[in-house]
Amino acid sequence: MITLDDLEIIKSALECDIIRQKQNEKADHPAFKKWLADTEKLHKKVSNEIITRKAKIKILEKMKF
């Protein structure tokens, strides 16, 4: 199972990749645009998973009290 820390690392790597893709000289090439769109879509999924997991952790912590 992927841990929350693993997801944070993946998110950071995806953010760096998105920046590099946008700065690439071939950024206007259709294949690059597709890859960028796929990367941004994955980044959104990972970000949403992080938010969901953190919310679950907070809820569980509040239930302990």
Rank of each mutant, 00 (worst) to 15 (best):
K58M: 09
T52V: 05
D5Y: 07
M1C: 05
D17C: 10
E40N: 02
L36W: 04
K41S: 13
E15I: 15
L60N: 08
R53P: 02
E25Q: 12
I18V: 15
F32E: 10
T39E: 08
I50T: 02
E49Q: 10
I50H: 02
I19C: 03
K56Y: 06
E40W: 02
S47Q: 03
E40M: 04
E61L: 14
A31G: 12
I2P: 01
T3V: 09
K54W: 02
L4K: 04
K26P: 01
P30G: 14
N48K: 14
I9L: 12
A37Y: 04
M1Q: 13
I2S: 05
L4Q: 06
L4E: 01
I59S: 00
K62P: 02
V46T: 06
M1T: 06
T3N: 05
H43F: 14
D6E: 10
S47W: 02
L42D: 09
I9E: 13
L4W: 02
D28S: 12
S47P: 02
M63V: 08
E8G: 09
M63P: 00
E49N: 09
I59R: 10
R20F: 15
S12Y: 09
H29Y: 08
I59L: 06
N24W: 06
L7C: 02
W35S: 11
F65V: 15
D28N: 13
I59E: 03
L36K: 05
I50C: 03
D28P: 03
T39L: 03
S12G: 13
E49G: 01
I9R: 13
A13K: 11
K64V: 09
K56V: 06
D5R: 11
I50N: 00
I50E: 00
K44A: 14
K58R: 10
